[in-house]
Design a protein around this nucleic acid. Structure first.
Length: 603
RNA sequence: CGGGGUGUGGCUCAGCUUGGUAGAGCGCUGCGUUCGGGACGCAGAGGUCGAAGGUUCGAAUCCUUUCACCCCGACCA
């Protein structure tokens, strides 16, 4: 492909509003144009990358006997009412939805569990048709609260979503394991360094789930990893062994103390320097929006008797942090958010900063994170402005509230199994960051039951189909690849997903020897099935060609210049700098390119 | 949703405080000299100054409203 035939525009400076490398470089290199917040044109060069990624995704899915299909982007509200997710998605504000001419309501699909379940329900009658896994690659629409970082979090993005259908839980787990391996293969082939982590399943629902995190400091997710044990989990989900609290010492009677202005743990610590942070219990109030149907089903009561909103108070040790995801799950909530100032005043009778478990308003449910277990003689809010209680004991001064894991793992925490079996006693957790490029779920029968997708089993019984679902952010994979592979000069594409395998830079266009040699190399590479981009722009000087070459980051490079008459070219790969450069014959160069492509599995 | 910031040729920005009818660099077009790491000279093209309204003889500049985009926060009891 001749570069002069293409629409190819690069910028010397990146547009001002690009924060991360992948976004800035894609804009500079003309891969991307922003149309609105989180909505982009995928320019030709980027489209080639996306198609390469899609090719790998298809190849790995097809090898695992998955079938590709395509579902509609527009979905009717009815389908979402069947699964019970319409209200949740609308209340979270991420659903693009609008009225039809006839008055019905539709949405732009943010995901496709409803459509696929509806399809399979109509198509599958018998256990003989299962298992089966279907997938599609398609544009998804989500009106993100805060789109950002270019392709990293868009409102419209390319996603591969797959769905498995099985006759039993065990079979579902088998399908899930197969897909886990498919995902490992895909991300490995895309040249990414990644970590699979245990994850929260969020709005999708279901039991087990894992995310595939590309290791990158610019990632939006925090993950807890332990090198010693291989444990890895999204911070939303991670568990650790909570360090023991400091002992109480002398047991004193509970008493109130004036604590003017002390609304934070640090301020209280200054006031009571002898008190360790672990004997300071904070009480945090949340406004909760309940998932009424799920909650009613869990508790076995009528949905109409369940409150939709409420305020809860959660206790937590001073040195630990709460985890809103865990809280949300435990409460069967749609979402939890910090209570407003007015709500805090109504619940505690005090200004913000003095909430405690004793004397809370009766309509506020009280919970505690398990970090409070074993804490004695603690300090807590007095539910009275400028006042805290000291020397409080659960069991003596108040009952310990319902306690569960609501805490956030901290760097340095020990893994839960530390010191047991072969696990070292000092197996600690560190916190790193990652970009979520894939997420796999064991859905169970959540959708098949709500949408009555069943099959007739060998035993003559109708049973709900066991489902799994599996997503990859294709456009996000492209961005992640740049985050992981770039330098000051530009992108460095992994060979298998590079827009072209090879860039041939011609120094002097119109020079007979160079023209002829370039044509020969171009033709031979093309015949060998290698896509080569030939920079034969006439009025662009060598320096600019080199800058552009570095910017667009095609990994294999051949420079055809002054030694062309002697059949000599410069081998000049994107990485390695001057050390990697060599003058070799054109035949050797071709051989190297073909070999590299074959070794990388680039087809 | 709350807070902060920014909107001036394709890109990066100046001009605004103190109103007088729009500039620079890059990029683009033509000509010439150059030609292995973003050359130089000369001559050009290109802008409803985000939008609407107001004040004024006169608004990029002052006032009001509005829209868009970016960033931070959803972590405080």
């Amino acid at each position: 492909m001749k570069l002069s035939k293409q629409l190819f525009v690069t910028l010397r400076e990146a547009p001002a509003d690009a924060e991360v490398a992948s976004h800035a470089l894609m804009l500079r290199a003309g891969f991307l144009q922003q149309v609105a917040a989180g909505i982009y044109v995928y320019a030709p060069m980027l489209w080639r990358v996306l198609q390469r990624i899609e090719g790998i995704v298809r190849d790995e899915h097809d090898r695992a006997d998955c079938q590709e299909m395509l579902m509609p982007a527009i979905q009717p509200r009815d389908l979402w009412e069947e699964s019970g997710r319409w209200d949740r998605y609308v209340s979270e504000g991420i659903l693009f939805h609008f009225k039809e001419r006839k008055g019905g309501e539709v949405c732009l699909g943010p995901t496709h569990e409803e459509v696929i379940t509806n399809y399979v329900k109509a198509s599958v009658q018998s256990y003989k048709q299962l298992p089966v896994t279907l997938y599609q690659i398609q544009t998804k629409f989500r009106d993100e609260i805060r789109p950002r970082f270019g392709l990293m979090r868009g409102r419209e993005f390319i996603m591969k979503d797959a769905y498995s259908f099985d006759t039993s839980e065990e079979a579902m787990v088998e399908s899930y394991k197969t897909m886990r391996q498919v995902y490992r293969n895909i991300f490995t082939r895309c040249g990414l360094r990644f970590t699979p982590v245990e994850a929260d399943s969020g709005a999708i629902g279901g039991s087990g789930s894992e995310e595939f995190m590309v290791d990158a400091d610019t990632g939006e997710d925090a993950i807890a990893v332990c090198r010693a044990t291989g444990y890895a989990a999204n911070l939303e989900k991670a568990k650790s062994r909570i360090p023991a609290p400091a002992a109480c010492g002398e047991v004193l009677a509970m008493h109130k103390e004036p604590t003017p202005g002390a609304t934070t743990c640090d301020a209280l610590l200054e006031m009571f320097p002898e008190l360790p942070m672990t004997r300071l219990l904070k009480t945090i109030l949340y406004h909760v929006s309940y998932d009424v149907d799920t909650l009613a089903a869990r508790d076995g009561v009528e949905a109409s008797t369940v409150a939709t909103e409420g305020v809860v108070a959660v206790m937590c040790r001073g040195d630990r942090e709460l985890n809103e995801t865990k809280l949300t799950n435990h409460l069967c909530a749609l979402k939890v958010e910090l209570a407003s100032e007015d709500e805090v005043k109504a619940a505690t009778g005090a200004d913000v900063g003095y909430a405690g478990p004793i004397g809370l308003s009766a309509d506020v449910r009280l919970f505690a994170d398990e970090s409070v277990n074993g804490v004695e003689g603690f300090l807590c809010g007095g539910n009275e402005t400028d006042t805290h209680y000291l020397d409080v004991h659960f069991g003596r001064d108040l009952d310990q509230p319902e306690t569960a894991d609501f805490g956030t793992v901290q760097a340095g925490d020990l893994v839960v199994e530390a010191g047991t079996g072969d696990v070292p006693a000092d197996a600690a957790i560190e916190i790193t960051r990652g970009i979520e490029v894939g997420h796999i779920f064991q859905l169970g029968t959540k959708y098949s039951e709500s949408m009555s997708a069943s099959f007739l089993d060998v035993d003559q019984k109708q049973k709900p189909i066991w489902m799994g679902c599996y997503g990859i952010g294709v456009s996000r994979v492209a961005a992640s690849a740049i985050e992981q592979n770039h330098d000051d000069a530009g992108m460095i594409w992994p060979l298998e997903i590079a827009p072209y395998a090879c860039l041939m830079v011609q120094m002097k266009v119109g020079d007979e020897a160079q023209d002829a040699l370039c044509q020969k190399i171009h033709d031979e590479l093309t015949a060998a099935g290698v896509d080569v981009l030939w920079d034969e722009r006439k009025k662009v000087r060598p320096g600019a060609k080199f800058k552009d070459a570095d910017l667009i980051g095609i990994p294999l490079r051949i420079v055809v210049g002054r030694d062309a008459a002697d059949d000599q070219v410069e081998w000049s790969p994107r990485v390695g700098g001057d050390d990697a450069k060599e003058v070799i014959t054109s035949a050797d160069a071709i051989e190297r390119v073909v070999t590299a492509c074959r070794d990388a599995g680039r087809r």
